[in-house]
Amino acid sequence: MDVNKDSNQKAWLLFLGCAVPYRVSSYEISTRKVLAELDIKLVEMPEYNCCGLPIDPIDHEMMLILAARNLTLAEEKGLNLVVLCPGCAGTLRKVNKKLKESKMLREKINSYLKETGREFKGTIEAKHLLQLLIEDVGLEKIRSAVKKPLFNLQVSEHMGCHVTRPTGAVDFDNPENPEALKKLIEVTGAKYVDYIDKSACCGAPIAGVNDKIPLQLTKEKLIHVKDAGAQALITVCPFCHMMFDTNQPRIERMFNETFKIPVLHYPQLLGLAMGFSSEELNLKGLRVDPTPIISQVSDRAEGK
């Protein structure tokens, strides 16, 4: 697929991270489709490494170095970064901000990076996909790209903690009263459904340490989502998505519940509204069968 054909498109360097290419390719596929349609050119990022977040618990400094190395790769290309995983986005944003602000820290990290011939200069920005959509593409442009509005489809969101937290370091939206994903959902024509504890964590980050708590957390959220009457849940994080989608059948078995709530990556939802087919958006890659809502979508949209 060639998304780089139009030179008028705005170019962004795509930071894929670790989890997206490993387990959540639907997210990547749908993102590429949708952004191309919105005149965003994605440039591949050779030599990138893990953002650093997974090893922050064992070595904060090494985390800073890993993140900084990625930032220098982007600086070299002279392009801003668009990031799919909120964990990576939060880390890259935080470290970028810290290194720009603190000369002392910058000098320290650069003393290490020098060994591999790199230097952090602080010339680029890193943004999560949501931030790019809200701040750079803009709701108006997205609205005009919507061909098949998803009228009457009722959906909820689980945004993921690191899109907005910690407040001072990430500087995007308001975690206690988030609006970005809500606006982006409403622009597709779908009806936004609020639910209890919307901004609570899914528990994914400790899944490797403790298996039970994340499943309990996700179960509780699914109950609230179901009670609120949502037909689908929207995520923008590979880990959250694994908790809600991949693990949903397991949660149903374990706690003797029935949810059957399809969990879509936001670009999949937007893609549907823009008129992409479910194949193009790789909806079959989802664990929880989304067919009931897909059929509903096309019916209603065409009915209008």
């Binding site: 697929m1 894929l16 596929i29 050779p46 990138y48 490494n49 090893i55 090494m62």
Partner: peptide, 22 residues
């Protein structure tokens, strides 16, 4: 239909990991 994953540079990381004591 996705492009191949970009190449990575584990050597550079190992060098950094040695430097920092990681």
């Amino acid at each position: 239909g996705l492009p191949p994953l970009p190449k990575r540079n584990p050597k550079a990381l190992e060098k950094l990991a040695k430097e920092t004591g990681f």
